[in-house]
Amino acid sequence: MTAKWVIDTSRNGNGSNGEWCNPAGRKIGMTAQVGGGGGTEMLLWVKIPGDSDGNCGIAPNTYAGQFDPAIAIRLINGT
């Protein structure tokens, strides 16, 4: 059996900088789709772009799971 996986592209448009909690410089990635090449079954936005990871990174005053328009705008602009 060949391994299969899904990729969360909700904020991987600029790759990773090694941080996971509201990191700066992220960008919205590809929209959800079936397939994606290799063993990728689907590309998904697992997390709503703009939802905070917690009180950290670019959103130190935004609770986990709370939508913050400033985070969403940064993901659109890649800042």
Rank of each mutant, 00 (worst) to 15 (best):
Met1Tyr: 11
Met1His: 11
Thr2His: 10
Lys4Glu: 08
Lys4Pro: 00
Ile7Ser: 10
Asp8Ala: 15
Ser10Cys: 15
Ser10Met: 15
Ser10Asn: 15
Arg11Phe: 13
Asn12Pro: 00
Asn12Ser: 14
Gly13Lys: 02
Gly13Cys: 06
Gly13Met: 05
Asn14Asp: 03
Asn14Ile: 00
Asn14Ala: 06
Gly15Ile: 02
Ser16Ile: 00
Ser16Lys: 08
Ser16Thr: 08
Ser16Phe: 08
Ser16Gln: 11
Ser16Asp: 09
Asn17Glu: 05
Asn17Ser: 09
Asn17Val: 06
Gly18Arg: 06
Gly18Lys: 06
Gly18Gln: 07
Glu19Cys: 03
Glu19Ala: 14
Glu19Phe: 02
Trp20Asn: 03
Cys21His: 04
Cys21Gln: 05
Asn22Met: 04
Pro23Val: 08
Pro23Glu: 13
Ala24Ile: 10
Ala24Met: 10
Ala24His: 08
Gly25Cys: 13
Gly25Val: 07
Gly25Ser: 10
Arg26Ser: 07
Arg26Tyr: 09
Arg26Thr: 07
Arg26Val: 03
Lys27Ile: 00
Ile28Met: 12
Gly29Ile: 11
Met30Asn: 04
Met30Arg: 07
Thr31Trp: 12
Thr31His: 08
Ala32Pro: 11
Ala32Met: 12
Ala32Cys: 06
Gln33Pro: 01
Gln33Asn: 02
Gln33Ala: 09
Gln33Met: 13
Val34Tyr: 13
Gly35Arg: 13
Gly36Gln: 08
Gly36Arg: 10
Gly37Gln: 06
Gly37Thr: 01
Gly39Phe: 06
Thr40Tyr: 02
Thr40Phe: 01
Thr40Ile: 08
Thr40Trp: 01
Thr40Asn: 04
Thr40Gly: 00
Glu41Val: 04
Met42Asp: 02
Met42Glu: 05
Leu43Thr: 01
Leu43Phe: 09
Leu43Lys: 11
Leu44Val: 15
Leu44Glu: 12
Leu44Gln: 13
Trp45His: 15
Val46Glu: 13
Val46Met: 15
Lys47Trp: 14
Lys47Gly: 05
Lys47Ser: 08
Lys47His: 14
Ile48Cys: 09
Pro49Val: 04
Gly50Glu: 11
Gly50Thr: 09
Gly50Asp: 11
Asp51Asn: 15
Asp51Ser: 14
Ser52Tyr: 03
Ser52Asn: 07
Ser52Asp: 07
Ser52Ala: 09
Asp53Glu: 10
Gly54Cys: 00
Gly54Asp: 02
Gly54Val: 00
Asn55Gly: 01
Cys56His: 00
Gly57Ile: 02
Gly57Val: 00
Gly57His: 05
Gly57Asp: 05
Ala59Asp: 06
Ala59Glu: 02
Ala59Trp: 03
Asn61Arg: 11
Asn61Met: 06
Thr62Asn: 01
Thr62Ser: 02
Thr62Val: 13
Tyr63Glu: 11
Tyr63Gln: 14
Ala64Cys: 08
Ala64Thr: 04
Gly65Gln: 05
Gly65Phe: 07
Gly65Met: 10
Gln66Val: 07
Gln66Asp: 10
Phe67Asp: 04
Phe67Gln: 08
Phe67Pro: 02
Phe67Ala: 09
Asp68Trp: 09
Pro69Arg: 14
Pro69Glu: 10
Ala70Gln: 14
Ile71His: 01
Ile71Phe: 04
Ile71Asn: 00
Ala72Asp: 09
Ala72Ser: 11
Ile73Lys: 14
Ile73Glu: 15
Ile73Tyr: 12
Leu75Val: 01
Ile76Tyr: 11
Ile76Gly: 00
Asn77Lys: 13
Asn77His: 07
Asn77Leu: 15
Asn77Cys: 08
Asn77Gly: 03
Gly78Ser: 12
Thr79Gly: 12
